[in-house]
Simulated assay, not measured.
Amino acid sequence: MNKKHYAARDFSDAGTQRNFTAGEHVDVSAAELANYRAAGLVNTDGPQEPEAAVAEVTTTTAAPAKPKRTRKSSKTLN
């Protein structure tokens, strides 16, 4: 039961000098595929629209910033 794997984003494999485009079918050896999967570069969800990938990134929110602390003076007033 082999599932097709697709590039999750554009990336280049420095070892094999191959380039992959987001949504492109990735046809590589089992060892290379294991490395790509571990790095999160491929998935089995099928080709996705670039807008969908951007929407996922923009919907995540960062943690709220901490309020700034007031600075305490080390000088004593006379």
Rank of each mutant, 00 (worst) to 15 (best):
T59R: 14
K75Y: 12
G46I: 06
L77H: 09
A22K: 05
R69T: 15
A63H: 04
S73H: 05
G46P: 00
A8Y: 07
R69I: 13
A55S: 12
M1E: 06
D10S: 06
A30E: 14
Y36G: 03
R9V: 14
F11R: 03
H5S: 11
N2H: 08
A34M: 11
T61D: 01
T21G: 02
T70E: 13
E32L: 08
L77C: 02
P64F: 05
K68Y: 03
A34D: 15
E51H: 10
S29C: 00
T21V: 15
T44Q: 15
A22Q: 10
T61F: 06
E51Y: 12
Q17W: 05
A65P: 08
K68G: 11
P67H: 08
T59D: 14
A65T: 10
M1D: 10
T70G: 08
A34L: 11
A62R: 10
V42Q: 03
E51M: 14
Y6L: 08
T21H: 07
K66N: 09
V57I: 13
T59Q: 14
G46F: 04
S12E: 15
A38W: 02
A30S: 15
R71D: 13
N19A: 12
K75Q: 12
A55M: 06
E56H: 06
V28A: 01
K66C: 03
A53M: 12
N35Y: 05
P47A: 07
R9K: 15
K72I: 11
T21W: 04
N2I: 11
F11N: 02
K72W: 04
Y6Q: 07
N78W: 02
V28M: 03
E56S: 04
D10W: 01
K4A: 10
N43V: 07
V28Q: 06
H25W: 12
T70K: 12
M1C: 06
K4S: 13
F11P: 08
R18G: 00
A7L: 00
L77R: 13
E56Y: 08
N19L: 09
A65W: 04
R18M: 12
D45G: 11
Q48V: 10
V42R: 03
A34S: 14
A22Y: 01
A38G: 10
T70A: 13
D13Y: 01
R37A: 12
A22T: 02
K68V: 09
A65M: 02
A65V: 08
